[in-house]
């Protein structure tokens, strides 16, 4: 799949933002005054920037409000609802923190749970796509949630944040291990795509069209094996190992900032791979995979 900047930024930034908002909602940090303002602004800023980035992926954003109508069937519609409800529900919690209004903690806890729910709905947009075997696995939401929790724990300075960061690394390794065999396990070939497996072994004779089209641009992206291997190492290092190490050093708030920045860079690299390495079965018609 084409690794578009809009979807990479959307899923990474909103994931980190909602992860952090979950911790703030649960009261992991109980800031007040200006400190509360800056922390909540950071959470909202990340989440909203991510959501805005996603609208750049739309061909016709004028109709965006219509995306709230199909929550019964569509994960994208559920994601729209979950994110808006979370942001609205947590707003009074943020104000209560900033101005010391003493709102009952339950509101924040519900909002915090919804924030993680939002990350889950984002992940399900990809997980539900059977035509992309690498995504169609329960490890996809596990990966999205582990990034959100580790990012949130890092930003809110939890003692166990290094553990959460290391578990992101473990999840990434599992995702790659399982994902590398997913296309073959799904069992689709040019033979099943055309039904010509009845006859023998088909291969492409001539391309259907010599120039590019939407399908080729959007769904058939080829990433070099060596390139991917390097990026995987970089993602592991940046998203997991390095920030975990830095958090163990006595660097205080600067350590947190550095760890979070590195983690975000690693998350972006991992998310680029999530799209770039995902193969869509439509590629078979165009001769991808033999």
């Amino acid at each position: 799949m084409h690794p578009a900047a809009s979807v990479i930024l959307f899923s990474t930034l909103s994931g980190l933002g909602f992860g952090f908002l979950a911790f703030l909602g649960w009261g992991a940090l109980a800031p007040s005054g200006w400190a509360a303002f800056f922390l909540w602004a950071l959470g909202y800023g990340l989440a909203v920037t991510g959501l805005l980035a996603s609208t750049f992926h739309l061909g016709n954003p004028r109709n965006a409000l219509k995306a709230f109508t199909q929550w019964r069937t569509s994960w994208l519609s559920r994601e729209a609802w979950a994110s808006v409800v979370t942001l609205v529900l947590l707003a009074p919690v943020a104000l209560s923190g900033i101005f010391g209004l003493g709102l009952p903690r339950l509101v924040g806890q519900v909002g915090g749970a919804l924030a993680l729910g939002t990350v889950f709905t984002t992940a399900m947009i990809y997980t539900q796509i059977k035509a992309v075997p690498r995504w169609h696995h329960w490890l996809t939401p596990v990966m999205f949630l582990s990034f959100a929790v580790a990012g949130g724990a890092t930003l809110s300075g939890r003692l166990w944040a290094p553990l959460a960061l290391l578990s992101v690394g473990a999840v990434l390794l599992a995702v790659w291990r399982v994902g590398d065999g997913a296309f073959v396990r799904a069992g689709q070939t040019l033979g099943t795509a055309t039904g010509l497996d009845r006859l023998g072994l088909p291969s492409v004779l001539d391309p259907a069209h010599t120039a590019g089209n939407y399908l080729k641009r959007e769904m058939i992206f080829v990433v070099g094996r060596k390139h991917a291997a390097k990026l995987r190492k970089l993602a592991l290092l940046l998203a997991s190992a390095l920030p975990a190490l830095i958090l163990l050093l006595p660097l205080g708030v600067w350590g947190i900032a550095l760890a979070a920045a590195l983690h975000l860079a690693g998350a972006l690299a991992a998310r680029w791979l999530f799209f770039a390495e995902a193969e869509h079965v439509v590629g078979l018609y165009y001769g991808a995979r033999g």
């Binding site: 992926h57 061909g59 004028r62 439509v282 018609y285």
Partner: peptide
Amino acid sequence: CIGCGLCAWACPYGAREM
């Protein structure tokens, strides 16, 4: 339609083009 392209991703046959 908002042109999100998700339906084209969901179709295994490449039957939709934006």
